[in-house]
Amino acid sequence: MVHCISCKATMAGWVWDAIVGYLVPDVIIEIRNDMPSNAYSLYLHCKSEKDDRLGEHWLAKGQHYSWDFKINAVKGTTTYNCYMQWGNNKKKWFLVYRGSFGTDDWWYSVRQDGLYATQDGPSGKYKKMYKW
């Protein structure tokens, strides 16, 4: 009989990943540029608390950027912040997600007077969360 310790560890890791993938749903974050039409695009740069950077994005009016992730199974929480700039005057870091297991998805609308959010889907009722 051949014993493979690393095979058991690999199988255990695969089983754990499958369980976490099944039990822990993906969280979705979507940010939409709802600024007035003009020459400026919305600059967006997001990162997690672990400094996982999601890259730089330029969104024209009506465009959106979204990503999904799973809550950290060991730590149990996740945080994302986004830096947004529109034109020369509006620049700010916004907290867009701080959550734990069972936390719902978030949809954001970036507007001239601030950042609005809803958890009721992209066509839900948005509430102002932050001002510029």
Score class of each variant (00 low, 15 high):
6 S>E: 12
60 A>Q: 11
92 K>M: 03
87 G>F: 09
112 Q>I: 03
89 N>T: 08
37 S>R: 09
12 A>E: 13
84 M>A: 11
67 W>L: 13
102 G>D: 07
62 G>R: 03
61 K>W: 01
3 H>A: 14
45 H>I: 00
118 T>P: 01
92 K>V: 04
33 N>C: 04
53 R>M: 08
7 C>W: 07
24 V>K: 05
28 I>T: 14
34 D>S: 06
78 T>L: 04
73 A>I: 04
22 Y>M: 12
122 P>W: 03
57 H>C: 04
123 S>H: 11
115 L>C: 12
110 V>E: 09
75 K>H: 09
13 G>K: 08
54 L>Q: 01
103 T>Y: 13
47 K>D: 05
21 G>K: 01
102 G>L: 03
132 W>C: 02
29 I>K: 11
102 G>V: 02
114 G>N: 12
35 M>L: 14
44 L>E: 06
113 D>E: 12
73 A>T: 13
7 C>D: 14
18 A>V: 00
12 A>P: 00
1 M>K: 10
93 W>C: 00
9 A>L: 11
112 Q>C: 00
77 T>L: 01
78 T>N: 13
100 S>H: 10
123 S>W: 06
84 M>K: 01
45 H>S: 15
112 Q>S: 14
61 K>M: 10
57 H>I: 09
117 A>R: 12
2 V>Y: 08
52 D>H: 13
79 T>D: 10
99 G>P: 00
94 F>G: 05
109 S>Q: 08
93 W>V: 14
91 K>C: 06
73 A>C: 15
35 M>S: 00
71 I>D: 02
73 A>L: 10
34 D>F: 04
93 W>M: 13
17 D>V: 01
66 S>Y: 10
35 M>F: 06
38 N>W: 03
92 K>F: 12
124 G>Y: 02
33 N>P: 08
29 I>P: 07
91 K>I: 10
59 L>V: 07
59 L>Y: 11
104 D>M: 09
5 I>W: 04
20 V>L: 06
6 S>W: 10
110 V>H: 05
69 F>A: 05
6 S>N: 08
60 A>E: 09
